[in-house]
Amino acid sequence: MKILVCIKRVVDYNVRIRVKPDGGGVVTDGVKMSMNPFDEIAVEEALRIKEAGNADEIIVVSIGAKQVQEQLRTALAMGADRGIHVETTENIQPLTASRMLLNIAQSEGVDLVLLGKQAIDDDNNQTGQMLAALWDRPQATFASGLSFDGGKATTIREVDAGLEVLEVDLPAVVTVDLRLNEPRYVKLPDMMKAKKKTIDVKTLADLGVEAAPGVSSLGVRPPEGRQAGKKVETVEELVKELQARGLVND
């Protein structure tokens, strides 16, 4: 089995983001950037599938400016075999990204595409589903469990009502949730070895895709914050406050 893992470079999840004063997005200059944590789980899962003897090759792909190669290198250091960098500085939205990924999935002849359920910057939660639609293949979103049997995969999906078991034929797209695994740490020697692995650079034109954003941002603002209220000393006081607000019976 050949696996394609899609990774996105995002503001590190530990960074407390700030909205730019002019509303043109959030501050990213001088801010720590990392692999989207959900995508890191996808990379880890691919490695485990290969280690269990169910895959021969893991290709990682990322779309963006030159710097996304840092995240590709991290994935290669974790153990992926080779990378593809779709180089562009244009605004790439999920539908466009999924068209590029479709091109790559088909030309590489992959059996499984793994990616995070969403990126933690724009929180769209769309790319995996869109890729599966354009490819006319199954999708298993929010996966917290994944196993294989011949040409089929059984996934456990974390849905609002509980855990859904969905069986899909391969090739398929699986978007991963937090509890699927805990990604490994990258060791320095692995980082050095990863430098020898190949990253192919492609352009949008190579993939026959135009950026064509379908949605534009008119401005970004901070949310209405909640103010800290008051601390009470005793449960009796707490009950009185709740009664005063009509939240519990007198």
Binding site: V11, R16, I17, V19, V26, I120, D121, D122, D123, V215, S216, S217, L218, G219, V220, R221, P222, P223
Partner: peptide, 12 residues
């Protein structure tokens, strides 16, 4: 909401 609700985007 974007960034886990730490920013609000107006999209057209």
């Amino acid at each position: 909401p974007i960034y886990a609700g730490n920013a609000i985007d107006t999209v057209q």
